[in-house]
């Protein structure tokens, strides 16, 4: 049993490495896109079937975001990013629950050893994916902050004149805030990656130890973890967005 921190490469297109998690990401994206196209075509004023579920989720998110922003206009602005993050991350997380995790794949020889390269790997168990979303999230936060309160005032959150009250403390806090903006990228990406990667390892180990029944509770656990992590990612993005568009009070 070989568990790699990095996603395994299945094949190359030119020099571009196609990893199992990228493959999963693409399949997942295709499913999401097809579903949304299908939804668009069947949209009716009197909802039916899947539209009901989707609308329910949308309304729940609208209320949730409203409760954070207290402002319908901001809710409209934040809604697409927050909900997309939630949907994409939760579905990526739940890839690990698909049967065949860590078992179906191709045998490859590396350094004289034969190892199994599995096809199924949760997209969230790949730092490239979590980092990509974290980058988008943090950059959007900066962008929205600047757009909402202006570049000068937004910069004023981080660069504080040391001669103003409370003097150097303010400056120091500003620098800390600047660092925390960078730290957000790391905390976002590693939190999600760590949770889902650990979950995958746990499931693979359990499957290898006792193939029947014993992995079941862990599957439920991972179902829950996947939901919570997606919610945490989306909600933190939302809260940071709200903080960014709110001007500092002096």
């Amino acid at each position: 049993m070989e568990i790699s921190l990095a996603p395994e490469i299945i094949f190359h297109i030119g020099s571009f490495p196609v990893t199992n998690s990228l493959l999963m990401t693409l399949i997942l994206s295709a499913i999401i896109i097809l579903t949304s196209l299908n939804l668009r075509n069947k949209l009716k004023l009197v909802p039916k079937g899947f539209q009901n579920i989707f609308e329910y989720v949308m309304e729940a998110f609208l209320d949730l975001i409203d409760s954070v922003t207290q402002n319908r206009e901001q809710t409209r602005k934040f809604f697409p990013l927050v909900v997309t993050i939630f949907l994409f991350v939760i579905l990526s997380n739940w890839i690990e629950l698909v049967p065949g995790l860590g078992t179906i794949g191709i045998n490859e020889t590396h350094h004289g050893k034969t190892i199994l390269v599995p096809f199924i790997r949760s997209a969230s168990a790949d730092l490239n994916m979590t980092l990509a979303i974290a980058l988008i999230s943090v950059f959007t936060i900066q962008f929205m902050g600047i757009a909402a309160i202006g570049a000068a005032r937004y910069a004023g959150k981080f660069f504080v004149n040391p001669l103003r009250k409370p003097y150097f403390i303010g400056t120091f806090v500003g620098i800390l805030e600047l660092i925390s903006e960078v730290a957000k990228i790391i905390s976002f990406s590693f939190r999600l990656f760590g949770n889902i990667f650990a979950g995958e390892v746990l499931l693979i180990v359990m499957l290898n130890l006792v193939p029947y029944f014993v992995p079941l509770p862990f599957l439920f656990l991972e179902l829950f973890v996947g939901f919570v992590q997606a919610l945490v990612f989306a909600m933190l993005t939302l809260v940071f967005l709200k903080m960014a568009v709110t001007a500092h009070e002096h």
């Binding site: 996603p7 571009f16 990228l22 990013l81 997309t84 490239n128």
Partner: peptide, 22 residues
């Protein structure tokens, strides 16, 4: 850690497309 610039870019583009489509 398995971070690869090309993969990262691919994931970025993928997410942006997803966001736009959704």
């Amino acid at each position: 850690l398995g971070i690869d610039g090309r993969l990262l870019l691919a994931q970025l583009i993928n997410f942006v497309i997803l966001l736009a489509v959704l």
